[in-house]
């Protein structure tokens, strides 16, 4: 990381710590915001947050490593999370998974070399009556078929540069 990037990140973290309060209770708020902006939480960011909240960096790391929506490794701009729980499994998630891997050229747990897509497994997304279900960032897709994957990925590519955020109106049904 360039020195200037570090300085900018540090400034942002100070601003976040001031906004959410420099207390232990603010830790998850800060981490969630960093995750949203940078798609991961770097070692440097964890160190700075620890300094700002006056806690040990290991404590910050222990929290980051606990939650599945917080990541140390850099993630793609679009994080695809396919539900692997039983009803989506029965509805055919294996085929959807295979097609996702084929179309993206990566396997689960990986990020495409251009940094656009990460592929992850998720547990129950609460869409069991409309499976197979998957999340792309905060947007939910239901009744996904292998055939629909290409269109969904194209839709993401067209929005490149914009972190996709569902506003509630875009949701299915």
């Amino acid at each position: 990381m360039f020195l200037t990037e570090r300085e900018r990140l540090r400034d942002e973290l100070v601003e976040l710590a001031d906004r959410f309060g420099r207390s232990r209770g603010a830790l998850l708020f800060i981490l969630q915001e960093v995750q949203n902006r940078y798609y991961s939480i770097s070692e440097y960011a964890m160190q700075v947050i620890a300094d700002l909240l006056d806690i040990h960096p290991v404590e910050v790391h222990s929290v980051v490593s606990f939650y599945s929506f917080l990541n140390e490794r850099p993630q793609g701009q679009f994080v695809i999370r396919l539900c692997r729980t039983i009803t989506c499994d029965m509805a055919g998630k294996d085929q959807v998974a295979r097609q996702l891997e084929n179309d993206l050229g990566i396997t689960f747990g990986q990020t495409t070399p251009d940094g656009k897509f990460s592929l992850e497994w998720a547990h129950c997304l609460g869409m069991c009556d409309q499976g197979p279900a998957m999340l792309v960032n905060q947007r939910v897709y239901t009744r996904v078929t292998p055939e629909k994957i290409h269109g969904i990925l194209q839709e993401c590519r067209q929005r490149f540069g914009v972190h996709a955020v569902a506003d509630g109106k875009e949701l299915p049904q």
Partner: peptide, 8 residues
């Protein structure tokens, strides 16, 4: 935090 599989 509705995370129980099958609950929605």
């Amino acid at each position: 935090d509705e995370g129980e599989p099958g609950t929605f």
